[in-house]
């Protein structure tokens, strides 16, 4: 097991290197640069800026330079946010996105398992159709529609909750963005759990434990759920990585100072180092979470164990 994990960790190195290399060069194909403004800069000012940020060097030198610094944990200064390093921007943003994402993930997974299980137990009856209809709606209505609707109702009409901003980070400021993030997750997890739960409930080992006369809650929670969780667990890897690194849409709607928008704003501003920083972060998280999921998988399903 340890050996397998180690091998996986080592294999992330070429993956990350490929991600870094591809994004580094692809980004430079886009016209314009970090100092392109509507009101252009005089050539000598542009030259001074390019020199200061070493953008006047040949591209391969910049690449080597970046790679060496990144290895030492130095992700460079932001080209656009003067005086801030990429590391500072990302860690600051991540602390907000992480709190929102962790809550949304928790609510999404827990809510999804409960709803999915109830639906499966009432297969083809009202408690199945109801939640599944709601979850289909939850998946199909995008969060840029749900977000403003929630604000309209709870902030502008009722005045109960703030329309945006982190404020002091209180529960009030977080409720709406967390709900907006969690709703589609509940829906997705519910559908995943429902499907596999229905399958599990019809499997041989459940029929056996039912024949033994075990109470239904033991059958469902101890015996059926364990197998039924597998598809949800595989989805948890990418969904955790996505939620924890912030959602551009939700962060923009609720003016959350998270990291989600840095990826998009960074790309639009040609803030090369900021984009690289976010790419590396997201890539690393995806790899790490997928690894965690594989470990969890082997715990839940002995058939898939490596050792």
């Amino acid at each position: 097991m340890i050996y397998v994990i180690l091998r996986r960790v080592v294999s992330t190195i070429p993956t990350l290197l490929m991600v870094i290399t591809a994004s580094f060069f692809l980004m430079r194909f886009a016209p314009g640069g970090p100092f392109t403004l509507e009101h252009p800069l005089p050539p000598e000012v542009m030259a001074n800026l390019m020199k200061t940020y070493k953008l006047d060097l040949p591209l391969w030198q910049q690449y080597i330079h970046y790679l060496f610094n990144a290895l030492r944990g130095d992700f460079g200064p932001s080209f656009v946010y003067k005086g801030s390093s990429v590391y500072e921007l990302i860690t600051s943003g991540l602390s907000y996105s992480f709190i929102l994402g962790a809550w949304a993930l928790l609510i999404g997974v827990a809510g999804g398992i409960v709803v999915g299980t109830i639906a499966a137990l009432n297969h083809n009856r009202l408690p199945d159709y109801g939640p599944m209809l709601v979850s289909t709606i939850g998946i199909t209505i995008p969060n840029f529609v749900i977000g403003p609707l929630l604000i309209l109702l709870f902030s502008i009409k009722l005045g109960w909750l703030p329309a945006g901003g982190w404020g002091t980070g209180g529960v009030y400021n977080l409720i709406l963005p967390i709900i907006t993030l969690a709703l589609p997750q509940i829906a997705i997890y519910a559908r995943l759990v429902r499907g596999s739960m229905i399958e599990a409930l019809h499997s041989d080992h459940i029929r056996t434990v039912t024949a033994y006369g075990l109470p239904q809650y033991v059958i469902v929670i101890v015996h059926a759920l364990r197998g039924a969780l597998l598809p949800a667990v595989s989805y948890m890897g990418p969904s955790a990585a996505a939620l924890l690194t912030g959602s551009v849409v939700v962060e923009t709607i609720y003016s959350v100072p998270g990291i989600g928008r840095y990826f998009v704003i960074g790309a639009l501003n040609r803030d090369y180092t900021l984009v690289m920083g976010t790419v590396i972060l997201i890539a690393t998280l995806v790899i790490v979470f997928n690894l965690l999921v594989d470990v969890l998988y082997s715990v839940l399903d002995p058939r898939g164990r490596y050792d």
Partner: peptide, 12 residues
Amino acid sequence: LDQAASVRRYEA
């Protein structure tokens, strides 16, 4: 950044 979001915050 989002102009619509800032108008909503003004309304609230």
